[in-house]
Structure formats: structure tokens, C-alpha cells
């Protein structure tokens, strides 16, 4: 384990290079370039807020703000899970030919998505300002921690899925179906209060629930994250990360052969 960490540290610049490549390479050659990082989630927010506030008449104050705050972390998570599933396969040529710690691939992928989320938080902050809600700075101190927890959760899942997909290609399709459903069991388009009492425990089993809720607490309700959520998110994230790392370590040995 220690050796692994050391090895990964030695390859930190590979992670940095790949993240740079991912971020800079993605929009190279497109007219709007980096702006797409903002346009994409923004459009999503516009559509959802139109649908939910006009048609469903959701009774949430400043619904667009509530939606944006939940949507940005979700976009990051969704990207990590769906893209993370295929990221190792996508680099098959490299994996088959070159020796490097394979964890670098999912780590780079999740990290580049994470950087994207950081950029997209500009929109979130802007929305907070526009809404006139303002910031509560004591709460804001928790923001990096919550982001880190989400990063760990996403990375753990990406590690496990990217390794599993090498052996089992259906994973990609299964995951895409799963993600479609997952967004609706996460309090992004509704508040937890909307959930009937008997299902509330159930929705807490969703590891994204405490994370999205804490984003809401910090930026929407302007309170410090509550203890139960912090504990829950910490448990989920650490468990997902450790499990993912373990699965990856077990499966990575035969990557080159399976691909």
C-alpha cells in the first residue's frame, strides 16, 4: 500500500499532464472553447428550472439557485461515474504498451472533472450573488471539505467501475441506465422534506444525498453542515474510496491481457 502511494507520487506529474491534456484538449478547436464548461450545465439548469417551477410548480424559494447548487456537484459526479467507467478501456493502447501505475488514469479523469467543477462554481457563486442571498463565511469554510469528500466518493466509484469494465463491457450500459435513475433519488430537484417520512431513511442510503445536502446547507440555507451529514458523507466517501482502490488493485494486474 505504501509502495503504491510512493509510486503514485512519483507519477504525480503524469496525473498533472493528463489533467492538463484533458482540460486543454477537450475544447481545442471548438469556437466557444472553454466556455462550454459553463454553457452545458447552465442549459441543464435552465431546462430543469423551467420544467419544475412552471409545470410542476415546486414550492421552493429561489428554485433556480437551489437547483444550480445541487446540479454542479451532480454534474461532476455523473461525469466521473459515466466517463470513469470507460476511462481505462479508452486508454487501452497505453495500458497494453507502457508500464505505469494504472490508477493514474482514473485519478486523472476524476481530477480533471473536479477541476471543471471548480470552474463551474463560478456560476454557483454568481447565482448566489444574483439571488441576493449572500454568503455565510463560517459555512463557506466547509466547502473545500465537502468537495474533497465528493472527490473521494467519485474517485472510489470510478476506480471500481473502470477496472470492472475491462473485464465486463456491459458495465458501461448498466451504469448509464443507473445514472439516469440516480439523479431522481438525490435531492436536487426537490428538498428532502418532499420525501415521504418512511422513505427518508432510504434516501439517506444514497451516498450523494448527504453531499448534495451539505452543498445546499452551505450555499442555500447558509448554515454550517450538520454533524449527521458530515459523518454520513465521511463514511460513504472513505468506504467508496477504499473499496474502489482495493478492487482496482486486485483487477489491474491482468488489464493488459484482458484488453
Amino acid at each position: 500500500m505504501v509502495r503504491k502511494v510512493k509510486e503514485l507520487y512519483a507519477y504525480r506529474d503524469m496525473v498533472r499532464s493528463l489533467v492538463r491534456r484533458e482540460l486543454r484538449g477537450r475544447y481545442k478547436g471548438s469556437v466557444l472553447g472553454f466556455l462550454w464548461t459553463y454553457i452545458n450545465p447552465l442549459c441543464q439548469v435552465v431546462v430543469y428550472s423551467a420544467v419544475f417551477s412552471v409545470i410542476f410548480r415546486v414550492q421552493i424559494e429561489k428554485f433556480y439557485l437551489y437547483l444550480i447548487i445541487g446540479m454542479m456537484p451532480w454534474t461532476f459526479f455523473n461525469t466521473c461515474v459515466q466517463g470513469g467507467t470507460t476511462c481505462v478501456r479508452a486508454q487501452a493502447e497505453m495500458v497494453k504498451k507502457i508500464a505505469f501505475p494504472r490508477e493514474v488514469i482514473p485519478i486523472s479523469y476524476v481530477t480533471s472533472a473536479f477541476v471543471n467543477m471548480l470552474f463551474s462554481f463560478a456560476i454557483v457563486f454568481l447565482a448566489v450573488l444574483v439571488s441576493g442571498f449572500g454568503f455565510r463565511w463560517e459555512a463557506m469554510l466547509y466547502l473545500p471539505l465537502v468537495m474533497l469528500l465528493e472527490y473521494l466518493l467519485a474517485l472510489g466509484i470510478a476506480l471500481a467501475l473502470s477496472a470492472a469494465t475491462v473485464y465486463f463491457r456491459d458495465m458501461e450500459q448498466i451504469v448509464s441506465v443507473l445514472m439516469m435513475a440516480w439523479i431522481y433519488v438525490t435531492p436536487i430537484m426537490y428538498t428532502v422534506d418532499y420525501v415521504p417520512e418512511q422513505y427518508r431513511r432510504l434516501i439517506m442510503l444514497n451516498p450523494m444525498t448527504p453531499i448534495v445536502e451539505m452543498f445546499h446547507q452551505i450555499l442555500y440555507y447558509r448554515i454550517e453542515p450538520t454533524g449527521p451529514y458530515l459523518a454520513l458523507a465521511g463514511t460513504y466517501s472513505c468506504a467508496a474510496f477504499l473499496a474502489g482502490a482495493l478492487v482496482f488493485m486486485v483487477l489491474e494486474r491482468n488489464f493488459a491481457e484482458e484488453m
Binding site: A10, D13, M14, R16, S17, M94, I98, F100
Partner: peptide, 9 residues
Amino acid sequence: YTNASIFGL
């Protein structure tokens, strides 16, 4: 930079 970093530099 990218390529060399893959070789572990």
C-alpha cells in the same frame, strides 16, 4: 511533457 510524464518523469 505529457509523454515523458507517462514514462514516469
